[in-house]
Structures are given as C-alpha cells and as structure tokens.
C-alpha cells in the first residue's frame, strides 16, 4: 500500500514535483509496479554473490589528458557568462 506521504517523500528524493490532482493516479501506478516486482521478495536465496558483468575493466592511467574547451562545454547552457548559473527569481 503506497501512501500519499510516501509518494511525496519519493518525489523529494528524486527531485520531481507533482500536482496534487495527479497523486491518486501515481499511487495506483506505483502500487501496480511494486506488486509486479514484489515477486523477488518471495524468493528464498542462500548466499549468492550479487551479479555484475564479468568484463575485465581496463582502467586508464590517472593522468591529465585532452580536455574540452570552455566554450564547447557551455554551448548547451541557457544561462552562461563564462560559467553556469541560474537566475534566482523571487515571487
């Protein structure tokens, strides 16, 4: 059973905001998804090492390499003046 408070707490953690009118729909959808995934909690497992891919990780040396240009990095930012910033708007 998902509560309104739980949804609001999850939204805060996930940095999302929702209209109050959408909460009943979200509760219904999240309950349905949790019910769908809850099968895993019924499975009894003895110790099993948690899975990760068995790919050999070829780590690179920790050395200074080629970097992107400041203008390129800022290309997609809406507010910029040589750096990223947000215009705070007070109402």
């Amino acid at each position: 059973m998902v509560t309104k408070e739980q949804i609001l707490s999850l939204a805060k953690l996930a940095k999302l905001s929702f209209d109050k009118k959408d909460l009943p729909r979200l509760i219904h959808e999240l309950e349905s998804m949790i019910k769908f995934t809850d099968k895993v909690s019924e499975v009894k497992v003895d110790f099993v090492p948690a899975s990760c891919e068995e790919t050999h990780i070829d780590t690179r040396k920790d050395e200074i390499g080629k970097s992107s240009k400041r203008e390129e990095i800022l290309k997609n930012a809406k507010n910029k003046n040589g750096f990223f910033f947000i215009n705070t708007t007070l109402y």
Partner: peptide, 23 residues
C-alpha cells in the same frame, strides 16, 4: 524514476534491489 528511487531507498534496498541482484 519513482520506482527506482523506491527500490534504492534505505527501507526497501535489501528486499528489492539487493535481492534482484542476487537473482
């Protein structure tokens, strides 16, 4: 994103995320 946040939250991480990795 909401479901992912739920299964990673401290109360449910063991019963969902860690269990899923074992399975």
């Amino acid at each position: 994103i909401l479901l992912g946040t739920y299964v990673l939250s401290s109360s449910y991480r063991d019963s969902f995320y860690n269990k899923a990795q074992e399975i």
